[in-house]
């Protein structure tokens, strides 16, 4: 079997599901395609030997963020298509603008020579190595993240509850 085959299968699935997030008409279908896209990106993490990130990605995105999105969609009850679509001119303009951005971003890598991996380490993404980095070199940002999450939690509860007169 061609060893690069998993990359191409996962990459085509990611691009397809990302396109369907934008193009599908019902918001619930968009969320389901987004979940699928997140799982394919998790597959890319596994291919890149980042086991810890794979686990965190599945827990945070498929576990928490998707539940939030689905809950909000069900709460607002937008399964029926009430979204008026933009005019065709704006759609064409958006596609052309995104295409130009893509051309620029791919174009800047065009002159670079094709690179193969210059590191033979395969244990970079293990829990042990990342834990040493997180609790050593990056201890202060790691603790600040907890304050950020606490502030976000308080803010979300404050916004979500009915205002008391």
């Amino acid at each position: 079997m061609n060893p690069s085959l998993p990359f191409f299968v996962l990459a085509s699935l990611s691009v397809f599901s990302a396109l369907m997030v934008v193009l599908s008409r019902k918001p619930v279908h968009s969320v389901l395609y987004l979940i699928f896209c997140f799982f394919t990106i998790g597959g890319h993490y596994l291919l890149l030997n980042a086991q810890f990130l794979f686990a965190v990605h599945i827990i945070v995105y498929a576990g928490a963020i998707m539940v939030l999105f689905l809950f909000t969609l069900m709460f607002i009850n937008m399964n029926k298509e009430l979204e008026p679509h933009k005019t065709n001119l704006i759609k064409v303009a958006a596609t052309v603008a995104a295409g130009c951005l893509l051309i620029v971003m791919v174009g800047v890598t065009k002159g670079a020579e094709s690179l193969a991996a210059n590191s033979t380490r395969t244990d970079v993404g293990t829990v042990a190595n990342l834990g040493k980095a997180l609790y050593g070199q990056y201890l202060l940002p790691f603790e600040l993240i907890s304050i950020l999450l606490l502030a976000a939690m308080v803010g979300a509860v404050l916004l979500g509850k009915k205002s008391v007169e």
Binding site: L48, N49, A50, F52, L53, V56, H57, V60, Y61, A64, I65, L68, F69, L115, A117, N118, S119, T120, R121, V124, G125, N129, L130, A133, L134, Q137, Y138, P141, I145, L148, L149, A151, A152, M153, G155, A156, L159
Partner: peptide, 26 residues
């Protein structure tokens, strides 16, 4: 990060995920 054999990039991804979760909740 995998390409260079350096774990700093993956630590940054971890932080980005935490910020993304906070951003979505709010």
């Amino acid at each position: 990060s995998t390409f260079h054999g350096d774990e700093s990039g993956q630590v940054m991804v971890f932080f980005i995920m935490a910020v993304a979760a906070a951003e979505v909740a709010v």
